[in-house]
Amino acid sequence: MNPTAGIVYLLDDEPEMVKAISRLLRAKRFDVRGFSSVNAFLEACQPEGPACLVLDVSMPELDGLELQRRLTRQGILIPIVFLTGHGDIPMSVRAIKAGATDFLTKPVDAALLIPAVSAALQVARSRWKDDAEVKALEEQEAALTAREREVMRHVVAGELNKQIALALGTGEQNIKQHRANIMKKMGVESVADLVRVTERLGLTRR
């Protein structure tokens, strides 16, 4: 995949800075969207594909970290590259812990910025892919009936058909039938794969 594929969102309260970094990134063939206002950014941030965010941490309007949390809550899980005028260690640690991809100090040299952005986009892409996959799975899962979902739970728990039938108060045959449907719907051929799929689903669902 194109390392520059994906949108790079740029948010800095200083328009000049936005302008300068945008130029740089664009020169490096990134698809940059620059904002100097948080609200403007939030409105525009509806990524259809992988995207990352280059974010100035110390903005008067909104604490950068706060923004990160807000995005997360909104389900916009895009990787963030933090920029800061200070070289404060505690802050950077906090940012990383909160899931920042990178933490750079201004003035930021292109040699540092470009790889960071690329990495972020990579993460974004993979996440995107992951997301896409997960989405497909989710759709499959959604196709299951309630009964099937119930059965799947037991199957995944490693129980035998007999046991499941007993637990659910139905015949074994039914269980076998369900099993087959589940396998089909879920697009897997082995119980092990099913487990993996459910795990994936379970991972992304809370």
Partner: peptide, 13 residues
């Protein structure tokens, strides 16, 4: 750092 950063990014661009 702000102006410096601006200068740097602009120059590299």
């Amino acid at each position: 750092n702000q102006p410096l950063g601006i200068i740097l990014s602009n120059a590299q661009a």
